[in-house]
Simulated assay, not measured.
Amino acid sequence: MTSNAADPIYEDLRALILSGKVKSGSPLRQDEIAKRFGVSKIPVREALQRLEVENLVTFERNKGATVRHYTVTEILQLMDIRIALECRALELAVPHMIDADLREMRKLLSDYAQRTEAAEWSDMNAKFHHMLYEPCGNAQLLRMINDLQEKLGQYLRLLVSEATGLERPMREHDEILDACENEDAATAVHKLRDHIQTTQKEVAAFLRRGA
């Protein structure tokens, strides 16, 4: 059972971590957090433990709590899981897409193409992928995809957008949506798999260069 005093601390720290405002590996000093919120260390500890359960925080002996650091290997493994979950969601979604869904996605891609900032690309990319999978009708699968995106966090999603740029993802998004409009689930899934795998390779190269 969680205490009300821990809730705002948990929500504030979680938002800071997922946005990348507190970087991976950063220490989370309980006394400083307690002072900022005007509380004892007990609700701070509880909030940090909740974040640990979500894999956002780690506790180390003689070091205390730090923001969870994902290695390059772990990031690429999370993208492997993306392929499995998202391809299945799209396979289920295509037969249930209606004209209104397709129009909204086409409109989003048109708006997406006008944007110039990586942060905007990142947000609109996430929205497009969400719209692709939403008609799948499997709430648990959608929740798993959302949980995975939250693990990656805004900071890592922005890194992906910086690594890939706009032109190649936009072209591939158009091709995926073309297949959906043609009710061709097999082609849509094939193109989605290639799309994520290419992104994975670009992110690996980007990280190897020390980004």
Rank of each mutant, 00 (worst) to 15 (best):
S40H: 04
S40T: 12
K41R: 11
K41Y: 01
K41I: 02
I42V: 12
I42W: 01
I42T: 07
R45M: 12
A47T: 01
L48K: 06
Q49W: 04
R50A: 10
R50T: 05
L51C: 04
L51H: 03
L51V: 05
E52C: 09
E52G: 05
E52L: 10
E54M: 04
E54Y: 00
E54K: 02
L56V: 08
V57Q: 05
V57H: 05
T58Q: 13
T58L: 13
F59P: 00
F59I: 02
E60A: 13
E60C: 05
R61K: 15
R61P: 03
R61A: 13
N62C: 09
A65E: 03
T66Q: 12
R68P: 01
R68M: 12
T71P: 12
T71G: 14
V72K: 15
E74F: 09
E74I: 06
E74D: 09
I75D: 09
L76H: 05
L76K: 03
L76T: 09
Q77W: 10
L78P: 00
M79Y: 03
M79C: 03
I81L: 15
I81V: 15
I81G: 02
R82H: 08
R82G: 02
L85W: 07
E86P: 02
C87W: 00
R88S: 13
R88W: 05
A89L: 00
L90K: 05
E91P: 02
L92N: 05
A93S: 12
A93D: 11
P95L: 10
H96A: 15
M97A: 15
M97G: 11
I98L: 13
D99N: 15
A100R: 09
A100N: 02
D101A: 12
E104P: 01
M105S: 08
K107G: 06
K107I: 00
K107R: 09
L109N: 04
S110C: 12
Y112M: 10
Q114V: 01
Q114I: 01
T116K: 15
E117C: 00
E117L: 00
A119S: 06
E120S: 04
W121T: 01
W121M: 04
D123E: 14
M124I: 05
M124A: 08
N125H: 03
A126R: 11
A126G: 08
A126E: 09
A126V: 09
K127S: 14
F128T: 09
H129V: 14
H130P: 00
E134V: 04
P135C: 07
C136T: 12
C136S: 13
N138L: 03
N138W: 01
N138A: 06
A139L: 07
A139P: 01
A139I: 07
Q140T: 09
R143T: 14
R143Y: 11
R143V: 07
M144C: 11
I145E: 00
I145T: 07
N146C: 06
D147F: 07
D147A: 12
